[in-house]
Design a binder for these strands. Sequence first.
DNA 1: TAGATTGTTAATCGATTAACAATC
DNA 2: TAGATTGTTAATCGATTAACAATC
Lengths: 222, 222
Amino acid sequence: MRVDSVPEATLRRLPSYYHYLLRLREKGQELISAAQIGVALGVHHTQVRKDLAVTGSQGRPKVGHRVDDLIASIEEFLNWNNVSDAFLVGAGHMGTALLGYEGFERAGVRIVAAFDASPRRAGKKIQGVSVLPVEKFPDLARRMHVVIGILTVPAEDAQGVAEMMVASGIQAIWNFAPIVLELPETVIVEDVALYSSLGVLSRRLAVRRKSAAARDSVRAGP
Amino acid sequence: MRVDSVPEATLRRLPSYYHYLLRLREKGQELISAAQIGVALGVHHTQVRKDLAVTGSQGRPKVGHRVDDLIASIEEFLNWNNVSDAFLVGAGHMGTALLGYEGFERAGVRIVAAFDASPRRAGKKIQGVSVLPVEKFPDLARRMHVVIGILTVPAEDAQGVAEMMVASGIQAIWNFAPIVLELPETVIVEDVALYSSLGVLSRRLAVRRKSAAARDSVRAGP
DNA sequence: TAGATTGTTAATCGATTAACAATC
DNA sequence: TAGATTGTTAATCGATTAACAATC
């Protein structure tokens, strides 16, 4: 049983619309049609309409959608207008990078503390966020009612840390480790699969080279 | 016309199998069945078989697959056994994080130089990789026959830098900026859509809260 | 009004899952 | 051998695209 009837593919496209619309607004554009969005983002215009429809935003025939309305509707639909506190575990390269991002508050997430198992890192401040010993996570998470965990630890530690997070009341995990976490299915896990992305890139490049090589050998003759 | 007949969903799952298999090998396990992989990674066993089939690897009835064979087949299929040089542009938070990753060489990519528009960053070394002025990109890319570009610049600079990359001979771009790049369709673009990921997470969490609240109000009575 | 655009219903397409024969 | 597992073909499911009526 799916809790949310909205297709995941739609959820993934909405942020892309959102950032495009922000840019339009910055340029002062007030109206936009589904077809224009589609062309700009490489999505079929019917698909754009369906995606926007789930947010409840309505356009006017012959006129299009108000950029402001769309932005507000997407924000509300994704709950990006309510910022939730998040704890990050793993203050390594990726963790440090995420702590430096400004844009996540606009996407409903504020990283309020970071944790690390290494005493070398704990005690420091990174990008203005304190790095604490990971032992302090459970107590603090509970006291501050933090329900979002960001997981940027090495793959071999990820499962253990994730379990600690869930035991501390975390309900959603943004996982950067290249493993599939085994957790109660009530926990929301969203993977950032960097290696999946690299796999697609590498394969496409290889296929492209192969077909280019094939063309060249035809051109050169048998 | 699709150049590669293999579904993208399959390409995205293969790296996940790959990392799981690496862990098995480390533990000394020599054989594995599609069903076991499926249980561990949350994929239907038939799907696992189809995915593995595209790599050309074969298993034996009643026995399963040799872990070694699968690893080798996936590596070859994704061309991860041939490492390509890559240039990174944007030595900010995310760029720095990627320069620190050890695992990308195993995924076919070696970052050999970084570039940045800011004179403050250019000239430094980050994680042992030199950061050069972005003006040097075109000439160096051509001379070194670099065809992979990693794009970690702010959103507003991404389109321009991507065009510069393509003009310099780059054939595939790993894009971390939250915009849809408009480039010739011969260019392979692979987006790491952090905000799409956050959108899904935020929405799921909101839906979960809503249904929890609904349950509570029923329990409390009308 | 005419026609551009929306929003919805129907058709198509592709990916996932089910069923089952092959085989070690 | 019996049965666990593979690999393939058929059925189902869900997402995308096409068709079209509604409307400003």
